[in-house]
Design a binder for these strands. Sequence first.
DNA 1: TTGAAAGCGGTACCAG
DNA 2: CTGGTACCGCTTTCAA
Lengths: 340, 340
Amino acid sequence: MPTSKDVARLAGVSQSTVSYVMSGRRPISEKTRKRVEDAMAQLAFQPNAGARALASRRSQVIGLAIPFVFDLHRGSIMEFISVIAATARQSDYDILLVTDDEGPQGLERVVGQQLVDGLIIMQVEGDDARVPVIRNLPVPSVLIGIPEKHEGLECIDADFELAGQMCVEELAKLGHETVTLVDWQDEVIRRHVNYVKRFHRGVDKASAAVGVKVLHAPGRVTIAGMEKAVAKALERTKGIPAFIAPEAANADLLVEALANLGLVPGRDVSVVANCSDGLAERQRIPLTTIGFEPDEVSRRAVHMIVRDLTDPASRPPEALELIRPVFKHRKSTIRPRPKR
Amino acid sequence: MPTSKDVARLAGVSQSTVSYVMSGRRPISEKTRKRVEDAMAQLAFQPNAGARALASRRSQVIGLAIPFVFDLHRGSIMEFISVIAATARQSDYDILLVTDDEGPQGLERVVGQQLVDGLIIMQVEGDDARVPVIRNLPVPSVLIGIPEKHEGLECIDADFELAGQMCVEELAKLGHETVTLVDWQDEVIRRHVNYVKRFHRGVDKASAAVGVKVLHAPGRVTIAGMEKAVAKALERTKGIPAFIAPEAANADLLVEALANLGLVPGRDVSVVANCSDGLAERQRIPLTTIGFEPDEVSRRAVHMIVRDLTDPASRPPEALELIRPVFKHRKSTIRPRPKR
DNA sequence: TTGAAAGCGGTACCAG
DNA sequence: CTGGTACCGCTTTCAA
């Protein structure tokens, strides 16, 4: 493997000049730059990451703490990870995985070994054991998810509270007086996953504000179970029924269940669901989907940490970014105001 | 951050002794070891990864090439990733992500920069652009998936061919003369994903060998679509129908569809499906599941690369490991020999 | 605009 | 069994 010394020799300049050509940290005459760049190309030179990290005290690596996976979320976790990795590369950072089975000490380790310049912590819970740890770490972190105590932290997440509100308001605006919330899976609720609470809060707020009654249907079971839940909701609703299904798996089930019951969204029922684009399209179902924009959240998280790293001065003492959820297929889908 | 020099000073030994205490590469008297270890603990010393990599020429990091995600596989990809990361830690390696949007040059980059000591390549296709690249890399790689040309490579995957055979034979043994294969999704087949071919080959072999007729049902559609496919299969089958559903999503759909049609596996039909344990259990369905053991594949992949790295001499010139798929819930589930 | 040289924090060889 | 020391390859200060 060629070193920068080899490049320097071939280009007939000093090693420091090669370094400055790479970093751009001082002016270089056009012709020496050219000579150096040619030499680098000719030797297929790649700077040694370890040496660079040692000398510059920055590894150009961001640690990514990935959560324990419980079935439900694997797919979306994967989406976060790949977007984060790709986005980081755009700013010349690599991603090192930190799994949860090392515990919070895993974070101390990668920081202590100076393997990483900063951290992105995924799926942060309301009372997350990793939070006190990162507070004492000498590198910046960005959390995806909002812990209860978040003073002095940089957090980002979808705005689940707003989402809850938006869903209820959307349906209220159309004239629905009763809406059924197809909830997250029991397991998720039991784990006190933070964003569920926030979504519920939004729903409750809006429901109180606009005077809509909210029924709760239990989370993912089977198609048959979902059909039963739908039937029950129909009974308890006067007029046109309306459904909110914020969890992807449940959204899919709901769509199937409605289809089986011969109910067409936008004609017989109103539905706002976090339904995968794929399913909505495949089935040509005129659906209003609500998306929590995982790509956007991931990208922002990377941008935040990169900003902290490249321009530490600009690092805010605290930040709480909430990404606005997005309705899609809107016009074509929502059931017009039912007659009273 | 304390350095090994600080440790040495505090322990009253030389820096090299500290190094040898960490690496164990030469005998150290019990009492100096103790003094050094105490000093390290007292200072909360962590060795600097960059310096270590520079001096030792090994980064203790393995690059993991993750695939472009297309919806279907996200969940299982995630499973591979977390098992790989956790297993690597057991041997004191970290995992650095390499995404596909850098293209195969991403691999050249992380190796060229000496960021990684070796590579694990996920979801290798029959004709994978990354394969020619890694052949010329000066570090070992392990492929998950079997490319057509695999001489000189270390590959590992589930034995899909054997799986295809096993499924058909299992059902043939019970007396079925016609079985219906619920296939992978069209999209997967269209992409010529390698393991699909291998599974089909196994099915065809076994079908020829034992004289069983195989019907093909299309991959994932909707519940309704699946119900139709099941109905069609029933028509075209004399005697007790039998199904094979090797793709997880389809397996779930099939189970739902059968339930909706009032057909009980093990009583009215035989089913061998790659059904998630979760669903099988939740529904209390006596199902024969076939698993492709992604955890086992992941673990083996890590073990292979770690062996290559820690004991280069033992590196085989070539390796093709196929993990045997596993039937579960066997006894309780398969329909007994139908009367003729 | 460029070069020389002193580190960065470990590793491992050479001595003793 | 232990210490001294020459690197590993790049960054950055000091000088010119």
